[in-house]
Simulated assay, not measured.
Amino acid sequence: MSKHHIEIRRGERLGHQALIDGTDIACSLAGLTLRLDKDALPRLELDLLGPGIAECSDLDAQLIVSQGAAETLRALGWTPPADQP
């Protein structure tokens, strides 16, 4: 599992900043949970905002990842598909 530098701080006006390796992902966060277990690296679980899908079955569709979501995922180590702008 890769390690990342995390900073959470109050924003300039309202809200907050949540930086992962220098990228602010606050606009893509619904919440987070920080676990501090003995003899282990801290574990940060992110609840990302996204479309609500109750059920999906046998669907062909083009998936578009917003710029904010893509930046968040890249900060977490995601490599986008070659056809993803």
Rank of each mutant, 00 (worst) to 15 (best):
A70Y: 00
Q62G: 01
L14Q: 14
E55Y: 04
Q17G: 02
R10A: 15
T79F: 08
R74T: 07
T79Y: 05
R74N: 06
P51V: 14
I53R: 03
L46G: 07
A61S: 10
M1F: 12
R43E: 14
Q67L: 15
E7P: 00
E71A: 15
A26I: 07
L32H: 13
A75S: 15
L59C: 05
L46Y: 04
H5K: 09
R9Y: 06
H16Q: 04
L73R: 12
D60W: 00
L63E: 10
H16L: 00
G31A: 00
D60C: 08
L49P: 01
G52P: 09
D37S: 15
R74D: 05
S57Y: 05
S2W: 00
D24L: 05
E55K: 07
T72S: 14
L48K: 00
P80R: 03
L14K: 03
A82K: 11
A26G: 10
L63I: 12
D37T: 12
P42H: 06
I6F: 14
R13Q: 11
G77I: 02
V65C: 09
I64Y: 14
G77L: 03
A75V: 03
H4S: 08
G11L: 14
D47Y: 02
I6L: 10
P81K: 14
T23Y: 08
P81R: 13
A40V: 04
G15E: 06
S2P: 03
I25D: 01
D47H: 14
D47T: 03
Q84R: 02
G68S: 07
H16A: 13
L32V: 12
Q67C: 04
L14G: 12
L49C: 10
E12N: 09
R74A: 04
L48A: 07
C27P: 01
D21S: 03
S57P: 01
I64K: 05
A69T: 10
Q17D: 13
P51Q: 09
R43M: 04
L76E: 13
P81A: 08
S66G: 15
L63S: 04
L41R: 06
K38I: 04
G77V: 11
Q67P: 07
L49V: 11
L32D: 03
D39T: 00
E7L: 06
H5I: 11
S66I: 02
E45I: 13
V65T: 15
Q17Y: 14
